[in-house]
Design a protein around this nucleic acid. Structure first.
Lengths: 211, 211
DNA sequence: GTCTATATCCAGATAGAC
DNA sequence: GTCTATCTGGATATAGAC
């Protein structure tokens, strides 16, 4: 028996094992379709440990929520530091989100593919968390300094980021086959400049030859 | 006792009472946080009836899902019939969605604010349902006839409709205080033309006088 | 077709040894 | 701090009278 113990590789701390297992189960099956017993089994810890560490399933979800949003916040901060113009900052955030969707499926699914109010009711809505507030502030800054048209800031933020978010969700749903970074350039372009050809009159005068 | 029965107004068919009650409870509390007993109580019918009619909670959700998507499909069809150009059709759909968010909160919340795979796993993803496929077809038609720039159709559809969808979700979350139709014009404009001022060089040359 | 009463099951949570 | 065994509540689902 002692041999087995010695054979064990770097013994991942219990906390981490639980969170990792839970995240995977949550995004694959949905919070409510996962039982504490399943988490316990997948994490190779006992039920007791789970309740000691997190107080229950909701506690795990809450911890995950905070942890992941913290990470997001750091990413946003980095972008803000490394780029000055709001336009560039938005671009970088969109690029990051595209990349993360490929490399951190679980995290993105947890953030963009779940209805958090149903299982962490007392946590702030995701759009009211620090990283997302910072993103809205970037948009406002962009309007203030003239890079963006001065329109309602909700509309502006929704337009700029609504496209990526939609793409992320479609990708997570396996509707889109190519990795998101493939679409990055056109996505950025479309999100920032719109889908219509730039000169409207040009379009209107065009012969609409297609049936 | 018989008096009570006579006093009852138009006796809504049981099916309908159940669906209405369930929809409201689902969108307010989330599917998994609602028990059949609650539905039964709110609908003023017996548990037996619910199981006879729908076979259980999932059955209700499935029926709702199909019913609502049918309605959506009819709406989209109307739009397609009444307007020829894809641009106009997109505009109309966005207008409709904005309006519905105010007048049919429950329906919009059920469609845009729930993770259906978690409770109606064998139904098609919402983006694979008929109305949404038709919407993507509109976008493709727009690219074909030159109204829209010829880019990947996922990107195009996401850009055009990602903005409204985001706005709808924010409105449902009570983040946006004004009714959505208020923002309609700017939203359309931004979704179709982008958030950057039309002429880029114009912006670049502008004095960025704001701090 | 509608109801009430009941059965069954399982998830969440705890107790207490180690 | 970690584990196993156990309790309890509540949800789904059914049976059978009316």
């Amino acid at each position: 028996m002692p041999y087995l113990k010695r054979e064990a590789p770097i013994p991942e701390p219990t906390d981490c094992k639980i969170l990792t297992a839970a995240l995977e189960l949550f995004v694959n099956n949905g919070f409510h379709n996962v039982s504490v017993h399943e988490i316990q089994k997948q994490a190779n810890v006992s039920i007791g440990s789970i309740y000691k560490h997190f107080g229950g399933k909701e506690g795990i979800a809450k911890a995950l929520y905070k942890h992941i949003l913290n990470e997001m916040d750091e990413l946003v901060d980095d972008v803000i530091k490394e780029h000055q113009s709001p336009t560039k900052q938005c671009e970088e955030i969109i690029r990051l989100l595209c990349g993360y969707t490929e490399t951190h499926y679980d995290i993105m699914a947890f953030i963009f593919h779940a209805k958090h109010t149903e299982f962490v009711p007392d946590e702030p809505l995701i759009c009211n968390t620090i990283p997302f507030i910072k993103i809205r502030d970037i948009v406002k800054a962009g309007m203030k300094n003239g890079e963006f048209r001065k329109i309602d800031s909700w509309v502006a933020a929704s337009t700029i980021f609504g496209g990526v978010i939609r793409m992320i969700q479609l990708r997570l749903d396996n509707m889109i086959e190519e990795p998101l970074p493939t679409y990055f350039e056109t996505l950025i372009d479309a999100s920032l400049n719109g889908v219509l050809t730039n000169n409207k009159t040009e379009v209107d005068n065009k012969i609409t030859a297609v049936s």
